[in-house]
């Protein structure tokens, strides 16, 4: 049965994030979502979401004796400056990094303010540490096809080194159409990579610049508005059974044909997808 391999220090899995860093990412989220994003640009909101996700992954892998390297993580940016690793600081230019290395090498640790319930009907402001590994960036075009080709190279190597791993999960987040080439074939090539436990999972999140409501986890392309959304849908993996269960527990409708795809995603939708997509299936 696929997607049941144990994730352990001797048999780690990996996450690879492909992040759009084109010029349009400097625009705000669609107006309704802009409020939820605190007026931030898409690039800033996404950088916060990725940094928060890395922090959560580190904490998930932290045990009393230190960090357990259950995962290796890569963040690849694509935009006007080309396609390449997007970590900053000591991890600059590194493509796949074990979680322990991420834990010990944030670029900086910011103090941020979090508003929380004081338990008596009021709101209190609490200072929290916010480690940053990845800064917001946005300029030039959207070389998504090259990003998929880069992912293919990285994961071909990863799988040859970890042939029995829980299959790598690739999450591509973009607000626009590919500007270099048609990415369909490159995405299909990526999806054909497999460990003994199943094929690579590719999920696509399209970020919203409009007021349109998000279309989350569709089971067909019938209600998708245009060719671009249909293309992204066709390049997204069917959700494996364990993820179908997670979505179902979140109260979302799922079928056997549901794909890991969100169109017109707002920031809340992105954060929810990152949480579900990176939740462990079988951690030892």
């Amino acid at each position: 049965m696929p997607y049941t391999a144990e994730i352990s220090r001797t048999n780690p899995s990996c996450f690879l994030f492909l992040i759009d860093q084109s010029g349009s990412m400097q625009e705000p989220f669609g107006s309704a979502d802009g409020a939820a994003a605190g007026g931030k640009t898409k690039a800033e909101g996404l950088a916060d979401a990725i940094n928060r996700l890395l922090q959560n992954l580190v904490i998930k892998c932290a045990k009393s004796d230190g960090i357990r390297d259950y995962y290796h993580v890569g963040v690849i940016g694509y935009g006007g400056k080309g396609v390449g690793p997007a970590f900053g600081g000591a991890l600059k230019d590194k493509d796949m990094v074990p979680v322990s290395e991420i834990a010990n090498n944030p670029m900086r640790v910011e103090q941020r303010v979090k508003k929380t319930d004081d338990g008596a009907g009021g709101i209190i402001e609490q200072k929290i540490k916010f480690p940053v590994w990845f800064d917001a960036m946005g300029e030039g075009g959207t070389p998504m096809c090259t990003a998929f080709i880069t992912a293919n190279k990285l994961l071909t190597k990863w799988i040859s080194e970890h042939p029995n791993c829980f299959p790598p999960i690739v999450i591509n987040i973009s607000d626009g159409e590919s500007s270099d080439m048609d990415p369909y074939q490159a995405a299909c090539d990526l999806l054909s990579l497999a460990s003994t436990d199943g094929e690579v999972l590719l999920f696509n999140l399209h970020l919203s610049s409009s007021k349109e409501k998000a279309i989350e986890y569709p089971s067909s392309d019938e209600n998708l508005p245009d060719d671009h959304s249909k293309l992204l849908y066709s390049m997204s993996s069917l959700l494996p059974e364990y993820m179908q269960k997670m979505l179902s527990q979140e109260g979302l409708p799922v079928t056997y044909y549901t794909r890991g795809f969100v169109f017109n995603a707002d920031l809340v939708s992105v954060i929810r997808f990152l949480d579900i997509g990176t939740r462990p299936a079988n951690l030892r």
Binding site: Q55, V58, I59, A62, S64, K129
Partner: peptide, 17 residues
């Protein structure tokens, strides 16, 4: 017991959970 230990940022965060 756990708060006697000198812990890195991620271990402290995890303790809060």
């Amino acid at each position: 017991d756990v708060r006697q230990k000198d812990l890195p940022w991620y271990a402290e965060e995890k303790l809060e959970k």
